[in-house]
Design a protein around this nucleic acid. Sequence first.
DNA 1: AACTTCACCAACCGCGCTCAC
DNA 2: CGTGAGCGCGGTTGGTGAAGT
Length: 326
Amino acid sequence: MGHHYCCKERKVKRGLWSPEEDEKLIRCINMHGYGCWSNVPEKAGLQRCGKSCRFRWLNYLRPDIKRGRFTQEEEKLIISLHGAIGNSWAHISKYLPGRTDNEIKNYWNSWIKKKLYQKPSSTITAISSTSTIEQYEYNSQMGFGSSQSECLQSQHMTSTNAPLPMVEDTTSLLCRSSSSPSKHFITGLNSSTAGTWTHNTDHNNKDNHQHYYQVQALYNNNNNNNNNNNNNNEIPPATTSFTITPSCLDTDYQQSLIRIEENLVPAGAIKSHENCGTNMINDANQQLMIINSDDQLVNYPYNNGNLQLHQHYHSKFPECFWGQLY
DNA sequence: AACTTCACCAACCGCGCTCAC
DNA sequence: CGTGAGCGCGGTTGGTGAAGT
């Protein structure tokens, strides 16, 4: 591992920052701002690389940095957000004013992760609980988490139900199509899953048949988990289609955090594609609901698109971000 | 008191992206 | 359009102090 290019040219100091160095950096940034980090060491008279200066400023010297232990609310929010968008620490940090991505990442790795993994085996019924950790597990099981290892862990935790697809398998629930007239967005998937996908309903094809059953398994699980809805093993609608985008990277994603029943849940990338005309929202159980440009429910995994149910949620959560935005 | 283990977290590193040339 | 500089991000390392033996 070599030094960054900006550090190769000259000798730079590494390791912990001294108070004198901090002072120099603060003074420099107060005077000149921090437009070009590569120039900062020279201006500040520091034997550090620009990257190191940037890191020190953004994570420790910035005036709006909040120090001290994370509150319970912050922890809950981190767990919720991580369950939805995975290790996007920079995105998560935007919801926690004064906290840096590095701090959140450290906190996650040293504390929350441990707490989650030490938890005894639980079942999918955990979604009915208000526990944030259980919610996190469910998010991961449903593929809303982006880390494969976390999904593996979640799968391991599921003891009474058949194994749910992991996040990579979640994408295999759907078959790619070259074009799709209706476009929807699913959150919490990594950038490698970007593309347009549709349900495959070709039951004659062996491989596709497998996909179909995977889809059905997901639907059945959803049915099982939604207040014991009728589990009639209905074939999912062939018209259902999705566009999977790396929405966690979308700046508009930030607008889509909503509050439902005391849990902050991501509502999905509300606006990610021109000509889209559809929105997606997670309901109180973190299930997907997809809404078209006329504010009608076009797909609801529980019952294949029940407008009444949509209206029910619409009235129940009037503050939520429903319908067409653009 | 000395040593070991553990936990925390500041900092480094490589990679990928953007943008100017 | 290709290239390289610069920046931002997530993964990882390693130093330090606390806790345990």
